[in-house]
Nucleic acid binder design. Structure first.
Lengths: 239, 239
DNA sequence: ACCTTATGACAACACCGTTGACCTGTGAAG
DNA sequence: CTTCACAGGTCAACGGTGTTGTCATAAGGT
């Protein structure tokens, strides 16, 4: 077999499956996303997806080389949805903050998909658009090219990494999730001051903080550091 | 079957396998870690682990309820190893930097375990020790309690999130991993300047940067922002 | 109306985690 | 010593997985 996949653009023979469904890459991706959200990340298998579509599992290999290919298509679709609602204003720091928060909440809206795709490079249209936009924001802000790339890399990976981490938490079974919250209240908050002075002194803040994601804080720290760097660069070029 | 697992402490009948190996939870964990290190993350399956140990795969279910159980045992072992080699010096920034990098490389040394445990709160001794140490470092540096907790939370989640993210990349099949590297060279680096000016202008830096983890950069940005915050706080309390 | 061929279907392969039933050596009790 | 309960190793099987070689057929261009 050389390659059973035909590029989406070249497809024309829209032949329905036995159950009357007309397949397409888009339909497959949509169905996969629905499957993941409704029945969990483990619900995504070629066979189950085929069943959900009303098609033989092997038919999907006419559209995607292998499951990994499909994962990338799903990831790109998610990127596209996030980017589509982002409206940059020209204020680099506010724009990046907005985008970061959107990426994070976007991931949390599809936790299982986010967990499976956060670490993938798709090289597809939506991702390319996103990269172009982000680097553009940084360069227009005045960051020299190497610095812009460095900060872009850290920024995007941090958004994806926290998105996946926080998604993993929400994907935990209800019981396990509640149990983890209780560990902070019942274990950490009760440690005696003589053996664990620092935890005891900050217990109240710990319990409060650990209930929520630290991503907004981490994002602000990253942007603050970038701002510092930018001020430094501007001072140098002026002086 | 009620439960085929017997607590490690209660075990006494040390019966060798057909191939003469005497099993134990420790031996299984060690062998699993070796397997991951030597043959990649996807080399770890119950069947392969059984083969590597010289035992029937189903024997392992006498020691661990299921694979997840085994993964957690492995993760627990890793936390211990990381913390055991950390020696704080008193310089808060250097100490946190050192710990962050150790956590990250510790995760990368055993990607599968890192991916499964990054988002879990164990409440066990090693974890508690780590929390106490980190918050202690920040408080001694002069951060007020709410600020110390905020930065601790962002710091530890960042280390865990990047550890898991980068682990996921290395856990990818060889082929997929190489394919991703090629996307930057063959797709991004070849985009024309008229449609994607920002990517075209920074292509060289992008290809170089994307080859490596952005965690060190992200960590330094976080620490820089923390330093800025600390300077600000000190100026206020002095003035 | 014909012919090509894209595309769907089928069957098979080699793997996976997990479990119920079985067998046997171990170690303690008599 | 011998006995004997049973921990712990083994076997075979189940239902799942991704993937591929082969075949059948309907769609579309000529």
């Amino acid at each position: 077999m050389t390659d059973r996949v035909v590029p989406a653009a070249d497809r024309q023979r829209r032949r329905p499956t036995k159950q009357g469904v007309v397949l397409s890459a888009e339909l497959i991706v949509e169905t996969a996303l629905r499957l993941i959200e409704e029945h969990g990340a483990d619900a995504l298998s070629v066979r189950r997806l085929g069943r959900a579509l009303g098609a033989d599992p092997s038919s999907l290999y006419r559209y995607f080389r292998h499951t990994d290919d499909l994962m990338l298509a799903i990831a790109d679709e998610l990127i596209g949805r996030t980017l589509r609602v982002w409206r940059p204003t020209g204020d680099w720091r506010a724009d990046l903050r907005d985008l970061g928060l959107r990426m994070h909440t976007g991931a949390l809206a599809h936790p299982r998909a986010a967990m499976l795709s956060a670490h993938r490079v798709t090289g597809r249209v939506h991702e390319i658009q996103a990269v172009e936009s982000m680097i553009g924001v940084l360069r227009r802000a005045g960051f020299p090219d190497p610095e812009a790339v460095r900060i872009y890399h850290a920024f995007v990976d941090q958004a994806l990494a926290f998105g996946a981490l926080d998604s993993a938490v929400t994907a935990l079974p209800r019981a396990a999730q509640q149990a983890e919250a209780e560990v902070w209240r019942d274990t950490y908050a009760r440690l005696p001051a003589d053996t664990h002075p620092n935890i005891a002194a900050t217990a109240r803040h710990l319990v409060a903080s650990m209930r929520t994601s630290s991503y907004p804080a981490a994002l602000d720290l990253l942007l603050t550091a970038a701002q510092t760097r930018l001020d430094h660069i501007r001072a140098q070029t002026e002086g």
